[in-house]
Simulated scan of single mutants.
Amino acid sequence: MDLKDKHIIKGEIADYYLEDGILVSLSKNPRRTVDSIKKNVALVKEITNNKPIPLLIYLSNSPVPDRETREFSTTQLPIIYTAMAMVSKPGLSKFIMNILFSLKKPPIPMKSFTDDKKAKEWLKQYL
């Protein structure tokens, strides 16, 4: 992944850039809180002009957020994203999906990948 030509927007829990109508998130690893998620949602809305778009997220190993943060985060997803493709080492995204959505379906289409090219291809249907 070559970032030198990208306009990177720095955030507390992730850095972002836009590519071909897709928001790319370079996840960082601090523990997520309701406050950090609120700040991140505001940042994403600023980047996307308040229009939900597909998200390609490169996951990092961050601590599991508390229940309140997970529930709040779930309510925010459809407001800012049309779909989410998670790219990680095998097993990590599946683990995160199981934690976040073990009891209910994700609020937007989500899929995990180990190959970012396949993730981008899948996201294109949500542009």
Rank of each mutant, 00 (worst) to 15 (best):
T75M: 10
D116E: 15
G91W: 03
V87H: 02
G21P: 03
K28I: 03
V34H: 00
E71S: 04
N98G: 13
R67V: 11
K39H: 13
L100T: 11
F113S: 05
F72K: 01
D20G: 04
L56I: 00
K38C: 07
S60V: 10
L103Q: 14
D35Y: 12
Y58K: 07
E19S: 09
I79E: 15
L127C: 07
L92D: 04
P65W: 00
S36T: 11
T82P: 02
V41H: 04
R31Q: 12
A42W: 05
P107Y: 04
F113H: 02
N29G: 03
Y81Q: 09
G11N: 06
L127E: 11
N40D: 15
N98K: 10
W122A: 06
S25V: 05
G11T: 11
S112A: 07
E68N: 11
L103T: 14
Y16G: 02
T48V: 13
D15E: 01
P78T: 01
L26M: 02
K38T: 03
R67S: 12
P65Q: 05
G91P: 00
P107T: 12
P63H: 06
M86R: 01
F113V: 02
K6C: 09
K45S: 10
P106V: 03
K105C: 13
I13D: 02
E19C: 06
N40V: 00
S102G: 15
T74K: 15
E12G: 09
T69C: 10
D15I: 07
N50H: 06
N49D: 03
H7C: 10
L100G: 11
G91A: 00
A14K: 07
A83I: 11
I8M: 06
G21K: 02
Y126I: 04
K104V: 14
M97A: 13
L18Y: 02
M84R: 12
S62G: 13
K10E: 14
P78K: 04
E121A: 12
L43G: 01
T48A: 06
K51A: 04
G21Y: 08
L26S: 05
N50L: 05
A119W: 03
K94P: 00
M110A: 00
R31G: 11
Y126F: 15
T48E: 08
P90E: 07
D35F: 09
E121Q: 10
E12R: 15
M84C: 14
V24P: 00
T74C: 11
P52A: 00
L100F: 15
P109N: 01
A85P: 04
F72L: 02
I9S: 06
A83W: 09
K118H: 13
S27K: 10
V41G: 03
I79T: 13
N29R: 08
K120F: 13
K105M: 14
W122L: 02
T74Y: 09
P78I: 03
M1H: 14
I37S: 07
T82H: 12
M97W: 05
A42E: 14
K104E: 15
D66S: 08
K6F: 10
K120L: 15
N98L: 08
G91N: 02
N61W: 08
S25L: 02
W122T: 10
K124A: 06
S25R: 06
